[in-house]
Amino acid sequence: MKLDILYFSWVRERVGQSQETVETEAVTVTDLVADLTLRGAGYALAFVDTGAICVAVDQELSDFNTPLKDGCEVAFFPPMTGG
């Protein structure tokens, strides 16, 4: 299946791009992170501590056990600092 992946803040900087479409068989967000980590050193650095990053699936804050389906938009970012 294909997923649209977005990266923000220092996750974006480490990965080296703000968005991409990936082909994956990942069942959950955790599986997807394992796939992405293999894509290069920047990815490995971005995902070195998943406790330090958040995920949103289809624009809803989610956890790493969330199941994924074809066409999902998955965003990775550090804790938010608005206000």
Partner: peptide, 19 residues
Amino acid sequence: LKSRAPFWKKEIFKDYTEW
């Protein structure tokens, strides 16, 4: 807004930047 709105602040100084 502080912790759940998807904003990220970066501070840009003369010689370095910091999230």
